[in-house]
């Protein structure tokens, strides 16, 4: 029997009935809800492409069963901002041209958001440590670190 699970994604209530309750949240986001911003990289919770916020905490969701987020608040990269109203992090990534292929960026933006929520003035090495769970293979690391520093400054100035 198909079960229904209810939770919030980017502030909106959703109700999903995947083929079984062990279906990973990532598959539900991409295949049931059509939110493609959260990417599949490994399915092993190793690379960070699938990072989302669950009740504000950064979590890899490629192996996280959907039942475990019932009743919770999930935030994906689409929930940070959009072209009309970019999140300061997204704006800073564009300003610094922080990316090459860009496949890792959704997860990195989410990890960075979680860091800045808890530490508004991180050092360069604190930012790097917070992003160590995200793999970037193209070598955009230094631009990404600069962009996070810049977003932090913007957010402090606007706070």
């Amino acid at each position: 029997m198909t079960q229904t699970f209810e939770f919030h994604v980017n502030g909106k209530p959703v109700s999903v009935a995947p083929v079984n309750e062990e279906t990973p949240l990532l598959d539900v986001l991409r295949n049931e809800l059509g939110l493609m911003g959260t990417r599949f990289g490994c399915g092993l919770e190793q690379c960070g492409c699938c990072m989302v916020l669950i009740d504000g905490a950064p979590e890899k969701c490629c192996a996280k069963p959907v039942w475990s987020v019932a009743g919770k608040q999930v935030t994906t990269v689409e929930g940070l901002g959009n072209a009309d109203a970019p999140h300061p992090l997204q704006q800073a990534f564009l300003d610094e041209q922080a990316g090459q292929c860009g496949y890792c960026l959704s997860g990195i933006l989410i990890s960075a958001k979680a860091l800045l929520d808890s530490n508004p003035q991180p050092t360069r090495s604190e930012i790097a440590a917070a992003l160590d769970g995200n793999i970037c293979r193209c070598g955009s690391h230094n631009r990404i670190l600069r962009a996070v520093e810049k977003a932090a400054a913007t957010m402090r100035a606007g706070a």
Binding site: M36, T76, A83, L94, G102
Partner: peptide, 9 residues
């Protein structure tokens, strides 16, 4: 880059 930063498909 914008599409990649905003999570577009």
């Amino acid at each position: 880059l914008p599409g990649k930063v905003f999570g577009a498909p």
